[in-house]
């Protein structure tokens, strides 16, 4: 507990204000319609969310100052990795299924022939 109270309060406030700014920025981006491409907008929004998550983790959850061995940090990182695997994997698989399953039965033969021509 070497740091002063004022210092720690300052850190909390920095985190709070940064998070606030990031939230409002994301909101403005959507409301203003500056970014017209849906894909880019989604990407930027996710980056802003990720940035805010990192800010909160660093300033509110104090993962930066965890003592070694840093099990909390490791477990957090691994959980995020697995989270991304599950979410991205699910979306990938389900999109693929949707795409393939939405073919009318009479079109299946055609589709299979086309796939065969493409080869693996």
């Amino acid at each position: 507990m070497s740091r002063s109270l004022a210092h720690e309060l300052g850190r909390y406030s920095t985190g709070f204000i940064t998070a606030l700014v990031l939230s409002v920025a994301a909101y403005q981006l959507v409301v203003s319609g500056w970014v017209t491409s849906g894909g880019w907008l989604a990407f930027i929004l996710l980056v802003l969310a990720a940035a805010q998550m990192i800010v909160q983790v660093a300033f509110f959850l104090h993962l930066r100052s965890e003592q070694k061995p840093r099990w909390q940090t490791y477990s957090y990182a691994f959980t995020w990795l697995m989270l991304l695997v599950i979410i991205i994997g699910s979306i990938w698989i389900m999109r693929n299924l949707d795409y393939n399953m939405h073919i009318a039965p009479e079109q299946v033969n055609d589709y299979m022939l086309k796939q065969a021509q493409k080869g693996f």
């Binding site: 989604a42 929004l45 996710l46």
Partner: peptide, 16 residues
């Protein structure tokens, strides 16, 4: 932290 992602993925992306 969970809410940030609900805010972003559900609400903002939904509105957009």
């Amino acid at each position: 932290i969970i809410w940030i992602f609900i805010f972003t993925i559900v609400y903002l992306m939904g509105v957009a």
